[in-house]
């Protein structure tokens, strides 16, 4: 099967890749672009481990075909913080020990960033509903929510 040549932008950088029509954006990120920060949990849109943004809108990379990235702006965990500096959300996840095995963490950080861009001052209930699609198999939700609300407060203070 002929591979398709796709031109896109990932975390603000022009990117090209070749993919087959059945490959998902998650397959492309992890297998073709070696961007393994985005995790595969369920592969069926239920767990949120592969949360990314497409043109700024939060979604699961496993629910997007790789070819659909053409001309879009993709945002992944690799675009948050940097190798020598963590984002406030990442710092707060560490500070509150809001991770155990860590597989849900990149997705949660991406989702939390989307939440706080949309709603800088969420209530606990709003945060829990927004993040309901990010499952933590270690069930550490309490610390996660504390980290999210602390990050929100810190970012509001800094703004």
């Amino acid at each position: 099967m002929a591979k398709l040549h796709i031109t896109t932008s990932i975390n603000g950088e022009a990117t090209e890749f070749l993919c087959e029509p059945h490959e998902t954006l998650l397959d492309v990120l992890r297998n073709d672009l070696q961007m393994t920060g985005t995790k595969e949990g369920c592969g069926s849109g239920d767990c949120g481990a592969c949360s990314v943004t497409v043109d700024g809108r939060l979604t699961c990379a496993c629910l997007v075909l790789g070819v659909e990235a053409a001309g879009r702006e993709i945002g992944t965990i690799e675009g948050i913080g940097g190798s020598d500096k963590l984002s406030v959300i990442q710092e707060k996840f560490l500070e509150h020990a809001a991770l155990q095995c860590g597989i849900c963490t990149p997705g949660l950080v991406v989702s939390t960033q989307a939440l706080l861009e949309q709603n800088p001052n969420p209530t606990e209930a709003e945060a829990r509903y927004f993040l309901a699609g990010n499952l933590c198999r270690c069930t550490g939700y309490d610390k996660i929510i504390r980290a999210v609300l602390d990050a929100a407060a810190t970012m509001r203070g800094a703004a």
């Binding site: 497409v54 979604t59 629910l63 989702s111 990010n134």
Partner: peptide
């Protein structure tokens, strides 16, 4: 319908 992520699609 589904999560925030699913509603994004």
């Amino acid at each position: 319908i589904g999560s925030t992520q699913v509603q994004g699609r």
